[in-house]
Computed example of a mutant assay.
Amino acid sequence: VWSAVGAGAVFIMKQFFESIPREIEEAALIDGASPITTFFRIILPMATPALGALTILTFQGMWNEFFKAAVVLSGQQGNYTLPLGLSFFRSAYGVAGDWGLMLASAFLSMIPIIILFVVFQRYFVEGVSTSALKG
């Protein structure tokens, strides 16, 4: 995974963690929790909306990656990703290709993204809306 962490992912998580009140960490410290326990038992479960949104965005970005896959997989048609395969499929039929078949294959390549979004849409909407809030 060559670009699983990007500037957008760092920004979303930074904004989300800044929106968590400092008093929650202080209360855990007073209750005797170590910083590691505070992070894994209190802060990380609170971050599930942001992590869900980040999961969807990262998966979608990796799924639709074209340029890096074209550079790495040049000449290895058996290992093409779906965007590369669709491009090869289009060039195999030329300009006057079977557009119905090409659009059907493009729709089939969208199905995993749609399923992922439907499953995680609650986290996506909640995570995107809360990641931009400040304090």
Rank of each mutant, 00 (worst) to 15 (best):
G94P: 03
P35T: 06
A70S: 11
W99L: 10
I43G: 02
F66R: 04
A33Q: 11
E65M: 05
G61W: 02
V95S: 12
G61F: 00
L84Y: 08
R41Y: 09
P35W: 06
G100E: 06
G78W: 05
A96Q: 10
T81G: 15
A50S: 02
T37H: 15
G32P: 02
F67G: 10
L51F: 00
R90Q: 15
T58H: 03
N79W: 10
Y93R: 11
T48W: 00
I36A: 13
F40C: 09
Q77K: 12
G85R: 14
S87V: 09
W99N: 08
G97W: 01
G75Y: 10
S91A: 13
I43V: 11
G32H: 07
R41W: 11
V95C: 13
G94M: 09
M46D: 04
L84S: 01
I43K: 04
Q76L: 11
I42S: 13
S34P: 07
E65G: 04
N64M: 06
A50P: 00
Q60T: 07
G52S: 00
R41S: 12
T37W: 08
S34A: 08
F40V: 11
F67D: 12
I42K: 06
T58C: 14
G61K: 03
A96T: 09
A70K: 11
S74W: 14
V72H: 07
L44P: 05
A47I: 00
P45K: 02
L103A: 09
L44H: 04
T81M: 11
M102Y: 00
E65S: 05
T38N: 06
R90S: 12
G100I: 04
G32N: 01
F39T: 06
Y93H: 11
Q60R: 03
T58S: 09
P49C: 00
S74N: 14
R41G: 11
A50E: 01
G97V: 02
L57D: 03
G75N: 13
F59R: 13
R41F: 12
G100V: 03
A70Q: 09
L86F: 07
Q76N: 13
P49R: 00
T81L: 14
V71P: 08
V72Y: 15
T37R: 15
G94C: 07
L73F: 05
F67R: 14
M102A: 03
F66L: 11
T38W: 03
L101W: 02
L101G: 08
S87Q: 12
G100Q: 09
G61N: 03
Q77D: 14
V72T: 14
M102F: 01
L57I: 06
A92W: 02
S34M: 08
L103P: 06
N64K: 03
G85M: 13
W99V: 08
Y80S: 15
I36G: 15
T48G: 09
Y80E: 12
T55M: 07
Q76D: 13
P45Y: 00
S74L: 14
N79A: 14
T58M: 07
P49A: 01
L44E: 05
